[in-house]
Design a protein around this nucleic acid. Sequence first.
DNA 1: CACCTTAATGACTCAATGGTCAGTAAAGTG
DNA 2: CACTTTACTGACCATTGAGTCATTAAGGTG
Lengths: 206, 206
Amino acid sequence: MSAVPTEPRYQRRKEDRPKEIAEAAFEVFAEKGYAAARVDEVAKRAGVSKGLTYLYFKTKEELFKAVIRGVVVRRIDSLIDEVDSTELTAEAFLRGPMVAFMQRIPGSRISIVLRLLIAEGHRHPDLLEYYYENVVGRGLAMLRRFLERGIETGEFRRTAVNDMPQLIVAPMLLSAIWKMVFVKRSLDTDRLIEAHMDMILEHIKA
Amino acid sequence: MSAVPTEPRYQRRKEDRPKEIAEAAFEVFAEKGYAAARVDEVAKRAGVSKGLTYLYFKTKEELFKAVIRGVVVRRIDSLIDEVDSTELTAEAFLRGPMVAFMQRIPGSRISIVLRLLIAEGHRHPDLLEYYYENVVGRGLAMLRRFLERGIETGEFRRTAVNDMPQLIVAPMLLSAIWKMVFVKRSLDTDRLIEAHMDMILEHIKA
DNA sequence: CACCTTAATGACTCAATGGTCAGTAAAGTG
DNA sequence: CACTTTACTGACCATTGAGTCATTAAGGTG
């Protein structure tokens, strides 16, 4: 009655733990929102004690911020790079990579971040700042540059869209929200976004 | 040392109390969201004890639902009536009353309801149902009818917008959200909505 | 003005939850 | 294998906040 090699009660995995906890936290925040999310549940999903969560993240709020920032929208970066190096005509770029990008947003993690920011943003102004600086602002600036270039090459004419590139992405926003809110009322968001792009192009082409 | 007529500690106002409490609740929910809102604070703002709140509303959740439903969007009704009785050409109607309506949404109470529904909707499916049935669904149906009529009179041609009238209101949604989220980053939402309507019309006119 | 109904209060309960920390044991290290 | 370090646990605490209810008194009624 001895030497039964009891398996260890836990493993020490300093490296991976923060990621795992953040991942679990993302899920819980996504489902419940910030206020209704329970740190205990985050820990449970990460397969970890609540105490450990507090070893890696000082407070619930810090965990939240880390999680939101963690969805580091590299996608925007790659799109921006693509814009600046593409060989396509402006129109082809909009119809191709740009539309594809916009179609990917609804249903993605970014939508969820979006929802969280809409819901709780004003209580975390630094998060909003971060998100505007790194995503929204840069995205819009990129669109403006792109349109400007289109005008220089004679493809586009100058319209109100130049000042308000939000006009280009509005249906993407609507699609993202629609899919999250009216889950059951289906909406062909791909088609919506494409149709809108047709309209935009018709409007801005020289 | 007597007969000092002590003023009553409270007044009984059975009629008005529910409204006042609901009004206060709307404020608090608007600021904090559902989960972070405190019934105590609602009572305080309504100038009432917490107990009274529970006399008129069984639970916090019921209070929430009552409040959301309370923003009974009669505005949509009056717009629908207007659509059906207007003497204007379809184009004039879109440029006039329709744009005016859309411009009023950002900054209005409806935006706030919208935010609350985006944030907490999936945990109150009956609320979503209600809101879709009474606002979103009816609004979209109205737009579809309107466009159809425009086609019949020869003003409009048939386009993707007929199937997806969401295309018409997307910038309104963006505007509403932008104003709530990026309070400091100003955006001329009136102009945005108008410019978008120009584009729509250019696209759908026969 | 005595009496009654009930609107309104506010002190209370109890479960839940963010956060702490003393202790445990996993994985080195020499 | 003894010794050390520290990742990790889990029991614990203090607080908060939804919901209750015995009590009070406003205001009507006869």
